[in-house]
Each structure stands twice: as C-alpha cells, then as structure tokens.
Design a protein around this nucleic acid. Structure first.
Ligand code: MN
Ligand code: MN
Ligand code: ZN
Ligand code: ZN
Lengths: 135, 135
DNA sequence: TTTTACTTTAGAATTATTATAAACTAGTTT
DNA sequence: AAACTAGTTTATAATAATTCTAAAGTAAAA
C-alpha cells in the first residue's frame, strides 16, 4: 500500500492527514497481512517506533474514525480491552486463551450446514464463529 | 427449583447461605427458563424487589463464585459490560443489536460441516456461534 | 497571509470492575 | 446459650479502559 493510499484512507474517513494520523495509518495499513491489535498495543508501538508524541485520545479518535469508515473491524474477545482488526472481510477466529492471540479463519474455511431461522421480523446480519483453543 | 436446591447451589459454590446470597440465587435459579443478565441489571432488580441493601461487591463476588462453580457462564458481547448466562449448556446466540438482547440457540440447532484444524499443538476447546441480527 | 475549521493534547471525568479493611454474622465449640 | 472462629457484607478507595474538555496548535480555504 502506497502513501497515496494512506491519504485516501484518511480522507475517506473524514480525517485530515496530520502527521499523527499518517503514522497510525501507515502502521495499520502499510503491510502485506492483516492483523489484530488493541489501543494499548498500538500506543506502545507508536511510542517505540516514532519520535513524536501521540496523545491517547488521538489514537482512540483515529482508530474509531477508521472503524466508522469501515477500514477496521472490531472483534469480541472475552476481557476488558477492545480488539481491532485490519481484516474487514467476513471471517472467523481462533482464540488462544493462553497467549490471548486471535488467529484469522477465512470465511471459506467454515461451512455451516444448519442454522435456525431468525426471530420474527429480524434478519441475519452476519455470523461469527469463534473457536476457543486449548493446549 | 426449591429452596433446598438454592442452598445446594450456594454450598457447591463454596458460599454460606446468607440472606443476600439466597436472594441472588433465588432470582437467578428459581425460574423455569434460563436468561442472560449483567451485574447492573441484577443490581437494579435486587434494589427494586427486595428491602435490604446489596453492596455491589457482594453481587460481583456472588456472581463470580457461581461462575467459578460452573453454575453460570459468560457470553462475549460487543460492549463494555459483561453478560452472564444461567444457561450453562453448550449453546449459541442470536444478538439483536437494536435491543441489546441475547437469544439462545440450542447446540442442536447449529450444524457445522467444515472447520479448519487447530493450529499446531493446540486443540479446539469449544466453538461459539454468534449470529448478529438486523431488522 | 489571514482566516477558519479542524486537530492535538494533557488532564479530568466516566464507567465497569476489583481491592481493602472495618463491622458484622453463620456455624462451631464449649 | 455464650463464646469463638472463619467467613461475609459493606462503604469506600483503587484500578483500568475509555471518553470528554477546553486550550493551544495546524491544515486548508479564502
Ligand atoms: Mn468502541
Ligand atoms: Mn466483552
Ligand atoms: Zn480477524
Ligand atoms: Zn445463552
């Protein structure tokens, strides 16, 4: 992903390309594989890898703007912190409780044969399969 | 569920049957159908339906003791509050985002045909299917 | 360049949860 | 039944994740 794409991500999220936001966007999107992160892990990375400061509020605001624009998704994990995902396709997860690690499962890897019909007046929006792992 | 069973629930959770705990246990277990709740909803019910006071810490402690003893389970729901479930069988959920309501799906209602194998050295502990609803 | 609207930031506020430690009580012992 | 002991409740403080605020700074428009 080129720098011009980073600007597009920002613009399409309603964000001006400030230096903080560009750094965040580069870290999130300028890579080959998608990944999962928390605000805390992102903050730690930014503190270590860049010279200037990032207020936590800036990180929260930027991540939420990306999420709102559909450039990030959120994953439900037991625990207190929110996990974000740069994989915005429909997909599923393994969760390794020992390491607190999320592993993607492509939607095509899961085939569901039978599912109940949605309650009256409701439709199915999406199905999330969460596979807990043990050793 | 009779009063004697309430005492068993408490005893098997390592809890003395105090009046607070008996009230909580009666509310949770003395009913025909299982249900989902948060600490907040439980607290509100107890405040409204009983005369004596419940410290929040007592509610948290009692619920956690039931969970640890296997009398309650926890459900991952997007959001900040923890949801508990008096249904401790393996089962799945519909989640109605409009009403923030969880609806049980019996394990037999879901048949999964294909699933990837667990990563090296890991085993599958359990599979949770979460179906998001829309109108 | 000046202006305007948006952005960053430090710190305060909020929310859910957990910890603390003093007052209280259930169950046991005498 | 009184005394004892271990467990319990409670108000309050502490912690952790997140959101809010408002002052100072910056990008883009005029
Ligand atoms: Mn959020
Ligand atoms: Mn959660
Ligand atoms: Zn993922
Ligand atoms: Zn349930």
């Amino acid at each position: 992903m080129k720098k011009i794409d980073i600007f597009k991500k920002l613009r399409s999220s309603g964000l001006r390309p400030t230096k903080q936001r560009v750094e965040i966007a580069k870290f999130l999107f300028e890579r080959d594989k998608t990944f999962h992160f928390t605000i805390e892990s992102l903050d730690k990375f930014l503190a270590k890898k860049t010279t200037f400061k990032f207020a936590l509020a800036t990180i929260y605001n930027t991540v939420h703007a990306f999420k709102k624009a559909g450039h990030l998704s959120e994953v439900d994990v037991r625990g207190k912190k929110t996990y974000f995902d740069t994989n915005i396709t429909n997909h599923h997860h393994f969760y390794d409780n020992e390491t607190s690690e999320l592993i993607d499962i492509d939607a095509s890897e899961v085939v569901i044969q039978k599912i109940p019909k949605a309650p009256n007046g409701k439709k199915i929006k999406n199905i999330e399969v969460f596979i807990n792992l043990k050793n």
